[in-house]
């Protein structure tokens, strides 16, 4: 009997284990190997920290790196700020059909690809775009205005892309909060602000943290949105990696960048968990 259980266990685990080993662990070990070598002659490599040293000595690289981190944290915070009231409204204020309808509205943009969604924003924001034309038609500006290719445009795109991934965990966690508990807080003299701060947010913390982790990871590793909405000067770290691998054929430096990005995201997620006093397991269940 025991033998049986363990066979089934391994069979069930097999697809996941294969996926993890073949697509995550092996490539990363290989990437680490490539990152830690230096070409000494054609087809000859030696162990070296040269790629990592280059990253820290070239200001463009680590500034882009830091900029990407800060912008991603900012995008995560903005997404949370916008998604929380939306989720609260969906989870606590609405009932029945209007609830599922609003939830569906959040989902609809994700039926088209990220590329199409981003082009949608470009149609709105570009010099000859909808907003520019509308402003001119209304007489608010004299000539065409370029709203694309700046940090604000990148931010708009990132927040928009991430919204659903924040709303889903938040709605789930808020729905699990009994209305009685909110009413009890009011009954005992609490107002909207204290109820939010002492009852709702502590209860929603696992959802907030898991939403933030997902959004932060997605934003940090996003390539398309910063590139299209930010243009050539968007300075997103994934672009640097892309450039090293594809344009400059410098796989060694590209791999080093990849490893650094992984370390950065792990570090920030770890810090976030420490600050919010959550554990990874509590946020993922």
């Amino acid at each position: 009997m025991k033998q049986h259980t363990s066979i089934f266990f391994w069979l069930l685990l097999a697809p996941f284990a294969l996926w993890l080993i073949l697509l995550v662990i092996i490539p990363h070990i290989d990437m680490l190997g490539i990152a830690l070598r230096e070409q000494t002659a054609p087809r000859e490599y030696a162990f070296s920290f040269k790629n990592f040293i280059e990253f820290f000595t070239e200001p463009l690289y680590w500034r882009t790196f830091m900029r990407t981190a800060v912008m991603s944290i900012l995008a995560t915070a903005l997404t949370l700020l916008i998604a929380f009231p939306v989720s609260y409204y969906i989870a606590k204020m609405l009932r029945g059909r209007s609830k599922s309808f609003l939830f569906l509205l959040c989902l609809i943009p994700f039926w088209v690809s990220e590329l199409v969604r981003t082009y949608g924003w470009m149609i709105l924001l570009r010099e000859t775009g909808v907003i520019s034309n509308a402003l001119q038609w209304a007489g608010l500006v004299s000539g065409p205005v370029e709203l694309l290719y700046n940090d604000a445009a990148i931010m708009v795109g990132l927040v928009y892309t991430s919204m659903l991934f924040m709303v889903v965990p938040l709605v789930t966690v808020l729905e699990s909060l009994d209305d009685d508990i909110i009413e009890a807080s009011y009954d005992l003299g609490g107002n909207m602000w204290t109820t939010m701060r002492q009852i709702v947010i502590p209860h929603a913390m696992p959802g907030i943290v898991s939403g933030c982790i997902i959004v932060f990871m997605m934003t940090l590793g996003n390539y398309l949105t910063p590139n299209l909405l930010g243009g050539k000067d968007s300075l997103w770290f994934t672009e640097q990696i892309y450039t090293q691998f594809i344009t400059r054929f410098n796989w060694e430096l590209g791999s080093a960048f990849g490893i650094l990005l992984l370390l950065l995201s792990s570090l920030i997620v770890w810090l976030g968990l420490k600050l919010s006093r959550q554990t990874l397991t509590s946020t993922m269940t």
Partner: peptide
Amino acid sequence: NMVFQHLALFPMMSVADNVAYGLKQR
């Protein structure tokens, strides 16, 4: 003040903090 059907104690707080909640609001 109301004692709710399912009591609605605040699970995120200790017993003492539950009792202190109303006093803190005041």
